[in-house]
């Protein structure tokens, strides 16, 4: 019996290692490559022979990469804040209030997220120009909400629906207004869901490329994914892989830090609602 259990555990561990390798190796190789210079980048070893920070220096000096990171940060944080703020109140209405056309509205919101980005690109471009937001970060904040709002609203609505009605009624008896109920009673209870959806929205906004490419023009307004794609080498025949890898590592690290930081809440958010506690 004991030997069998040990074999099972061993097999499971082996499986996990394979999966982890599969998932992490590309990122590991990116990190390794970012520390290589010149032609060393084409060596197929697992460890850089002469590790160097030259690529990182080049990325930061050849273009306004710090500004690009700041832009990405401003856009992503604004998108998350706006999406969660709007979605919280929308989900209170969808999850709790009964009104005509509730389902229709809910499915319309879901429908919005089903169009591929290219399909709405030209229309959005017209709107952006109409509001004079071309080459302005606001255009990105505005357009990213098209895909972040539907899923934040949907996820939060299902969480909101699962919150016990009696708690809301107790708050009503205590004299709480709808505003107080949402902010003082429901918001703390929704924290895990907010962290999860907020993080997903952040990642989506942080990595978005097509809108960012189309709605910005100058280097100073670009976000990180576009900036990386537009990194050029010394000549048009050279792709500066080292720089690109270094840039990729720089922009991935914040995401990893975020996920690790919110890890506990994140797991709670992913599983909450699945089982009645």
């Amino acid at each position: 019996m004991k030997g069998k259990a040990a074999l099972k555990t061993g097999g499971l561990v082996a499986l996990w290692i394979v999966v982890a390798l599969f998932l992490l190796f590309p990122f590991y190789y990116a990190v390794v490559s970012s520390f290589r210079e010149g032609s060393a980048i084409f060596e197929a070893s697992l460890w850089p022979a002469n590790p160097t920070f030259a690529n990182y220096e080049a990325v930061m000096t050849d273009q306004p990469f710090a500004t690009n990171i700041l832009n990405s940060l401003i856009v992503a944080v604004s998108v998350v804040a706006l999406s969660l703020g709007l979605a919280t109140f929308a989900s209170y209405a969808f999850g709790r209030a009964k009104f005509k056309g509730r389902r229709l509205l809910l499915y319309t919101i879901l429908g919005v997220s089903m169009f591929p980005q290219v399909a709405v690109l030209s229309g959005l471009f017209e709107i952006v120009r109409l509001f004079g937001l071309y080459n302005n970060l606001l255009s990105l904040v505005f357009s990213y909400m098209i895909f972040t709002l539907p899923f934040t609203v949907w996820v939060l609505t299902s969480f909101m629906r699962d919150l016990p009605v009696e708690i809301e009624e107790a708050a009503i008896m205590d004299g709480a207004s709808s505003w107080t109920i949402v902010t003082k009673v429901f918001l703390p209870l929704l924290a895990p869901a907010l962290v999860t959806t907020g993080l997903l929205a952040f990642i989506a906004a942080w990595n978005e490329f097509l809108f960012a490419l189309s709605f910005t023009l100058t280097n100073e307004q670009r976000t990180v994914p576009v900036a990386i794609a537009l990194i050029t080498g010394a000549s048009q025949y050279e792709l500066p892989w080292g720089n690109i890898m270094a840039a990729s590592v720089i922009v991935t690290v914040p995401l990893i830090v975020l996920v690790l930081f919110f890890q506990k809440k994140l797991v709670a958010g992913l599983t909450a609602g699945a089982v009645k506690g």
Partner: peptide, 18 residues
């Protein structure tokens, strides 16, 4: 409800968990 001068005790207690 808050202007009626009534309090209610619920079956599930309905305490604020946080």
């Amino acid at each position: 409800p808050s202007e009626r001068g009534v309090s209610m005790v619920f079956q599930s207690y309905a305490l604020y968990p946080h």
